[in-house]
């Protein structure tokens, strides 16, 4: 996983609550057996005027001019500003893969769905939870100011506005560490192989029916 670096990211607003993972990446694109290439189909049903299918050339499709990410002022955005319960629905990791592939590395919202939250951090995407009132202010500032950027300081756990106002945020220490260092979870866990084997040696005698290889 790539290391999360401090960034001054262009902000794009996604002004609706309960954005579900079907909306982030529709099911027809889940048929891919790869981890990459989902960016052109991020928010597919909102972004294009036609129905998308896997393998098509997205550059020739009719764009929905009303969709926020199609507006030139948000081109190159790295920070997505969203409303409550962002990422609800299915466990598809294709949702953070699509956000990442499109270029987003931060999502700010009042709340996130649990599985999406996990999946995003596994892919180097930082999710920042700020209270509703702060998020509302950021929406207003983003819409009012073309080229609005936020300074995302994970190390210091702060979102800093162009005027210098800083909003602190919470993130658990382990996730923060993994993001900053770009660490691979599996390698870390396998360092504890001994503890896992010890657990199995206690677990198996008391639950022999859970082991079918004996």
């Amino acid at each position: 996983m790539k290391k999360f670096e401090r960034l001054q990211g262009l902000v794009a607003p996604m002004d609706r609550a309960n954005v579900d993972t079907d909306l982030i990446i529709p099911k027809q694109f889940l048929k891919s057996i790869k981890r990459t290439g989902f960016g052109p189909n991020l928010f597919d049903e909102l972004r294009y005027l036609d129905e998308g299918y896997p393998g098509q050339d997205a550059t020739s499709r009719p764009l929905n001019p009303d969709f926020v990410l199609n507006q030139p002022r948000y081109r190159g955005a790295q920070v997505l500003l969203a409303r409550r319960n962002f990422g609800c629905g299915s466990s598809r990791e294709h949702a953070p893969w699509a956000l990442d592939d499109f270029g987003f590395c931060v999502v700010i919202a009042p709340s996130f769905a649990d599985i999406f939250y996990n999946n995003s951090f596994k892919n180097g995407i930082l999710l920042i939870t700020l209270d509703e009132a702060t998020v509302e202010r950021l929406f207003q500032a983003t819409e009012a100011t073309e080229g609005y950027r936020l300074d995302i300081d994970l190390e210091g756990q702060r979102v800093i506005t162009p005027s210098g106002e800083a909003f602190p945020f919470e993130v658990d220490a382990f996730r923060k560490h993994c993001l900053l260092e770009g660490l691979d979870d599996i390698g870390l866990t396998l360092e504890q192989s001994g503890a896992i084997r010890d657990f199995e040696s206690r677990h198996r005698p008391s639950n022999p029916w859970l082991f079918r290889d004996a």
């Binding site: 466990s91 990791e93 599985i115 996990n118 999946n119 596994k122 599996i186 866990t189 396998l190 896992i196």
Partner: peptide, 21 residues
């Protein structure tokens, strides 16, 4: 019982464990 993402599928396959809160 709960759903997991694909990175976690790989993690469970490799380690029989999950990092959880």
């Amino acid at each position: 019982s709960h759903g997991i993402g694909t990175s976690e599928v790989e993690h469970v396959l490799a380690t029989q464990c999950l990092i959880a809160q």
